[in-house]
């Protein structure tokens, strides 16, 4: 850093300009949203970008709006803003809670909704919860706009389907019609990243359970969740869903736990998450508890 050949700093002030620059430069410039993850990579010497495209001055990417009951989060909305926004706290409390559990206030002031998805770090909190609430990412380029579900967006370790001319500009979250929880299980320090993260949401009779931090991408098994489709979910169903998630998954091993340990915890934490969202009937709007949260 700071030496050798001059690095280019591109700071467009409108979305149109940003999209044009992105399309023009493609992979030759590195997009900077919050920049926290990029900075870690730069500090470790893993990357040394020659051109930086900062989205910091693009006002269109900073909105938090509700349109026809759908939440629209601009890509440059910080984690801290999701955590604090009164509308999100009221209507999508699980998002406030989950984003509020990320790292420290410093990181949450910096990290953005778009950035955390585009980084696709397996141990981040937001991807699993956004997947559970059925969010979609909006990808724009001069070619047009497309919307992709979170499990279509994230393809692998630090890998997404975002094309070289595209920017992730917005995240859209459907109206929350039922309870949702995010459980962040830390095996070590209270400040550690998750060993196992489970997000579960029930909306209009549908159950979505997503496990994060255990594999390359958030793990979601719709066929297993279908068991909890109608009526109250009893303990046996919750236990069964947990057991099947644990069995089907191929967890990774890292400093936070071995694969075998994670498998054990997945069974428990999925069961607990399902119990929490399953307790109140079909989940049609009742109980907006987004709480749950921690082990």
């Amino acid at each position: 850093m700071g030496g050798g050949t001059a690095v280019e700093w591109l700071a467009p002030s409108s979305l149109e300009e940003a999209l044009a620059l992105r399309a023009e430069r493609g992979g030759d410039t590195t997009v900077v949203a919050g920049g926290s993850f990029l900075a870690i990579l730069m500090n470790q010497g893993f990357v040394a970008p020659t051109s930086l495209l900062s989205l910091g001055k693009v006002q269109e990417l900073r909105g938090i709006d509700v349109v026809d009951g759908e939440l629209r989060l601009g890509a440059m909305v910080s984690h801290r803003a999701v955590e604090r926004d009164p509308v999100i706290r009221r209507d999508w409390p699980v998002l406030s809670r989950a984003f509020g559990l990320v790292a420290s206030p410093r990181v949450r002031n910096q990290a953005t909704v778009g950035g955390v998805l585009a980084d696709a770090d397996y141990a981040s909190d937001p991807p699993a919860v956004l997947c559970a609430v059925n969010a979609r990412a909006v990808l724009r380029s001069p070619r047009g706009v497309r919307q992709v579900a979170i499990d279509e967006l994230i393809l692998g370790f630090y890998e997404t389907c975002i094309a070289e001319d595209e920017l992730l500009t917005e995240v859209r979250v459907p109206a929350a019609l039922g309870p949702a929880v995010y459980r962040k299980f830390r095996s070590r320090s209270s400040e550690d990243r998750p060993c196992v993260a489970v997000a579960a949401a029930r909306s209009a009779g549908r159950l979505r359970v997503v496990v994060g931090a255990c594999a390359e991408v958030p793990q979601h098994y719709p066929d297993v969740c279908a068991e909890g489709a109608d009526g109250p979910i009893d303990d046996a169903v919750a236990r069964e869903i947990g057991a099947v998630y644990a069995k089907r998954m191929a967890p990774l091993s890292d400093s936070r736990g071995s694969a075998e340990y994670r498998r054990r915890v997945v069974a428990v934490e999925v069961r607990r998450a399902v119990e929490m969202v399953g307790a109140d009937g079909a989940g049609n709007g009742a109980g907006r508890e987004g709480a749950g949260g921690e082990e």
């Binding site: 990029l38 900075a39 801290r80 206030p105 410093r106 990181v107 910096q110």
Partner: peptide, 9 residues
């Protein structure tokens, strides 16, 4: 608002 100097371009 607090930020990390080491992570802020």
């Amino acid at each position: 608002e607090p930020l990390s100097g080491c992570l802020t371009l």
